[in-house]
Design a protein around this nucleic acid. Structure first.
Lengths: 362, 362
DNA sequence: CCGGGCCCTGGAAGCGCTTTCAGCGTACCC
DNA sequence: GGGTACGCTGAAAGCGCTTCCAGGGCCCGG
């Protein structure tokens, strides 16, 4: 459409091949010039022009200069689509968020993952393309886009349940790295943080400081990160003889955490500690606890998960499980790029460590 | 390898083919089949297969069925890159944020813009691709990506100063719609909200309720949205004889708003009202005012801009200038899609109305 | 003087798709 | 019966690029 002028011009002439030198070809200076035109202007063949532009060897200094000048004069920019078709590489990878965009956008966790990804990308000539699930949209367009050759590979984060997407991508032969262990059986490498041990140490810590009625605000039941932190918490509680029935699920948001906390207070008014599976949920929980007049940490100790920037600024500062968020993004990126480079012997999965950070909320 | 595949496909050497599939095709079953192979399997020509797949007319029911079956059996998916090269359309548009990703990601304003964009996109078969500025990265890769034919058009939001990007895109013939009036002279359509009148009405409102020392926390000086709200505020103050020297700039974030508020209190301790050019900055300002012991609205009236979801939940609930955020995104999208469809007579710019929403903070 | 490198070059063959165009059979209407 | 219209089809010509390959200079050692 935007090159309609060039197209019709070419078609209008009942041209044979020999009509090439027509100034008609130049007339379309509005449309992006092609390599062909650059080559002609530089007085070389398309092959040489291509080599010159791509900095390949076996191009004389003179040819190189002439091509450079022609590129400058004509304002040439290589058509990436054509290049992709010829090379079968696009120079870009996708970050797929299986989560409604507006949800992701307000989560500081993802902002930091993204920063890590960009940092892992720097130096490579790769462009990052973000794809988010439109709320009501079937994610079919996604798979079509990704498998259609638009990108060289994909990072998929925030998987829910048995999301078929990774399977589709893998089947299509697209290199994929998952952020977080998938719940479904998928033959794709993933990077994860040690949610289990992190949650376990959080629970132990609460026991160690003498709490005897420990609740948890768990993550979604359809995400491994939610389930792993829940089982980690159970593991931490195991053998203490303390009940582990005070469990409510949230969706990792503040509101979700607040709602879960309200349910916990109603069902288990005697609780003296709560482990929230994300800092954001801990924020919501603490607001509810404050509103309910429970003092933190005297009456209720609170532990979060993530160690977001807000954790130390809360009142009281939040004890939480630190996870290396930027590192998480960076590692996924590294893993994908390495795979794209054809490196072999890459680990099928990578686990990043977590660590309890004690502050005043416990 | 290419040659081998072609050979076996042509004359169906079952032995060789299956052996090859067993040994090599393990990781990505077979290379994705091409339209050629589908056509052969369906017993039709490539042209007919293409028509069948794209739902074009002039295909017999029988052919259609056979192609569908072949697609199913072979697991064919059309190569979008090849299709793009042939059609010069990609079926996707970009949303470009001239802002470090982690910044954008934590701003609820963008989340809502995004929602609006998706809503404007629904029904069209377009994919949205997000591009954000990596912090330290030169945005050259951006322009290359966008002009390289990866997308059919671009929405560009959050422009700063004389950002050359829109100009580059327009020069390359890429349809572009800007979100917010550009400061530089760019020949691209834009959608904007009526920042000027919104800010003006905010100032007037503060005058109307009897304030006589009205300050403002303005937005960045290199963004039109910042400047327009500042001049709107000045306009609202004009003719009242009240000084308009109490101006500090922030970056639309809470922290920026808080810092600006501190500066205002230091330089103009007698202020009795403040107009913050964004709700987020108003939040920061109110925190500082609370901390400084100034009562809102008795001692200092506060007006924001945006009418984010948090505005009514603040204490006191924030008087603010409502802008139709989702509508903003939706309109940009509509404008771009219309342009892509070749509609003519489209307005070069569209202005959306704003409106003061009075709450308890004034 | 000749054979064998080494540079550099252009012709040409794709990459996988769409779309034009000419052609064919069938049906329909004078 | 011939003309026209219509539905369907496949050959072929691209889209703009990369890359293989053969070949032509040139310099070298023999």
């Amino acid at each position: 459409m935007r090159r309609a002028a060039g197209g019709t011009a070419t078609h209008g002439e009942p041209v044979t091949e020999s009509a090439e030198a027509q100034s008609v070809g130049r007339m379309s200076q509005n449309a992006t010039p092609t390599l062909e035109e650059v080559a002609r202007a530089a007085g070389v063949s398309r092959a040489t022009a291509s080599r010159a532009i791509n900095g390949l060897p076996y191009v004389s200094e003179r040819a190189r200069e002439q091509v450079a000048r022609a590129v400058e004069v004509l304002g040439y920019r290589t058509n990436q689509v054509a290049r992709s078709l010829a090379t079968k590489r696009t120079g870009s990878i996708a970050l797929v968020m299986s989560e409604p965009g507006n949800f992701v956008l307000s989560d500081p966790f993802f902002a930091r993952v993204l920063r890590g990804i960009y940092s892992g990308l720097s130096g490579s000539q790769m462009q990052l393309v973000l794809l988010m699930n439109n709320e009501q949209d079937e994610e079919d367009g996604f798979a079509r886009y990704l498998c259609g050759g638009h990108v060289d590979g994909a990072l998929v984060v925030s998987l829910h349940g048995e999301d078929p997407l990774p399977g589709l991508l893998v089947d299509a032969g697209l290199p994929v790295v998952l952020g977080g262990r998938p719940l479904a059986r998928v033959d794709a490498p993933y990077v994860d943080v040690d949610n289990f041990n992190g949650a376990s140490s959080a629970a132990r810590h609460l026991i160690d400081i003498g709490r005897r009625r420990v609740a948890t605000i768990a993550g979604p039941e359809d995400m491994s990160v939610g389930m792993d932190r829940l089982s980690g918490w159970r593991r931490g509680m195991a053998g203490t003889g303390i009940a582990t029935d005070a469990v409510e699920h949230g969706d990792f948001t503040m509101e979700g955490g607040a709602a879960a906390m309200r349910r916990l207070l109603r069902n288990h008014p005697d609780l003296d500690a709560v482990f929230a599976a994300s800092d954001l949920m801990a924020v919501g929980a603490m607001q509810v606890l404050h509103a309910a007049g429970r003092r933190i940490p005297e009456e209720v100790a609170v532990v979060g998960f993530d160690n977001l920037d807000i954790a130390p600024t809360m009142s009281p500062p939040l004890t939480t499980v630190r996870q290396p968020i930027e590192e998480f993004g960076r590692t996924m990126t590294w893993r994908l790029l390495a795979q794209l480079e054809g490196e072999t012997g890459l680990p099928p999965s990578i686990m990043l460590p977590t660590e309890l950070v004690r502050r005043a909320s416990t």
